[in-house]
């Protein structure tokens, strides 16, 4: 299903700038939410752009929109401020990805909506 403008535009702050929210008790939510567990309030924070790989896979049979990238690494990243998110691990030999590997975030084109549609951008990680 193609990504259209409203859906894309809504996520820009998170995908372009890693904007998140931190509750009073210190937990970071990415993306920010409307409400937080326990009725806590949260203030805006920006995630650190470095972190490490907690677990990962290498996708050999990707979704159609990502087929040109195959095979690509994909991992759960813990940022150096303690937030967790999923990101592609690129610009490296997929055989060399390992748990604990240090990574940094870069701005990348995630997918293109055919020859006519939007170009969709966001974050991926590369070896630090």
């Amino acid at each position: 299903m193609k990504i259209r403008s409203p859906r894309y535009h809504r996520e820009v702050a998170q995908r372009y700038r890693l904007e998140a929210a931190q509750t009073e008790s210190g937990k970071i939510f990415f993306p920010p939410r409307v409400a937080y567990p326990g009725g806590e309030t949260a203030k805006p924070v920006v995630l650190k752009d470095t972190g490490k790989v907690l677990t990962f896979t290498v996708i050999h049979t990707p979704p159609a929109e990502y087929s040109d990238l195959s095979p690509y690494g994909l991992g759960i990243i813990e940022t150096d401020c303690g937030a967790r998110l999923l990101a592609q691990i690129v610009d490296c030999d997929v055989e060399k990805i390992e748990i604990g590997m240090r990574v940094k975030f870069e701005f990348r084109r995630m997918r293109t909506e055919g020859d006519e549609g939007l170009l969709c951008y966001g974050y991926k990680v590369v070896p630090e």
């Binding site: 040109d68 592609q88 870069e106 701005f107 990348r108 084109r109 995630m110």
Partner: peptide
């Protein structure tokens, strides 16, 4: 450029 890079992504990294 990587398959996921273009003038915009390169510019963003240089600007950062």
């Amino acid at each position: 450029p990587g398959h996921d890079q273009d003038t915009i992504t390169l510019s963003v990294e240089a600007a950062r």
